[in-house]
Amino acid sequence: MLNRIILIGRLTRDPELRYTPAGVAVTQFTLAVDRNFTGQNGEREADFIPVVTWRQLAETCANYLRKGRLTAVEGRIQVRNYENNEGKRVYVTEVIADNVRFLESSQNREGGSAASGAAMPEEPAFGGGNSGGGGNSGRGNNNNFSRNNNTQDPFSGDGKPIDISDDDLPF
């Protein structure tokens, strides 16, 4: 069985950091994710998806994420329920994130001109998990292809043709 989800969207408000009675950090925020189609009025619609992070990842998100920031979230969907003050059963569907990536720098948002197609900024990208292991806690985007090290990028030919023989093709 598989329960994985990957979302890219913008935060609707600053994350809320709280601590459980046992002292475990938990952060909640909502991600606005555009739909691939327009509504009847011709405007794009969005889904507003609640996201929860735990432990070190929660503290990191509270420190670095702000309203409007473009963010990628990877995790699992969880449905929980509880009984409210009126005795009614309430069901909540949310994403429990174990990996969060900041897809634009705060300078790009504040400057107001993030060029489309620009390279990924150097911002923290953190993965956690329920163990609180912390994942990546350094700066940078943790991709195989770093912006500062183009020697690993197989597509950095400056527009020159790539020499591929027929023997290299899998079909």
Rank of each mutant, 00 (worst) to 15 (best):
L7W: 08
L7M: 11
L11T: 04
R13V: 00
G23Y: 10
V24T: 15
A25Q: 06
L31S: 01
L31E: 07
L31M: 11
N36K: 15
N36E: 11
Q40A: 14
R44L: 10
D47R: 12
V51F: 06
W54N: 01
W54D: 00
W54R: 03
R55Y: 02
R55Q: 13
Q56N: 07
Q56I: 03
Q56A: 14
T60F: 11
C61F: 09
Y64Q: 08
T71A: 11
G75W: 08
R76L: 02
R76C: 03
R76A: 13
I77C: 05
R80L: 07
N81A: 05
Y82W: 14
E83R: 13
N84Y: 06
E86Q: 14
G87S: 06
K88V: 01
R89K: 15
V90N: 12
V92R: 07
T93H: 03
N99M: 09
L103E: 13
S105G: 12
Q107V: 07
G112L: 12
G117C: 01
A119G: 04
M120R: 14
P121A: 05
A125H: 10
A125W: 13
G127P: 02
G128D: 03
G129N: 10
N130W: 09
N130H: 07
S131W: 09
G132N: 01
G132K: 04
G133S: 04
G135C: 09
S137D: 06
S137N: 07
N141T: 11
N142M: 12
N143A: 15
F145I: 09
T151I: 00
D153A: 04
P154V: 00
F155N: 14
G159M: 01
P161T: 00
D163H: 11
I164Y: 11
S165Q: 13
D166W: 12
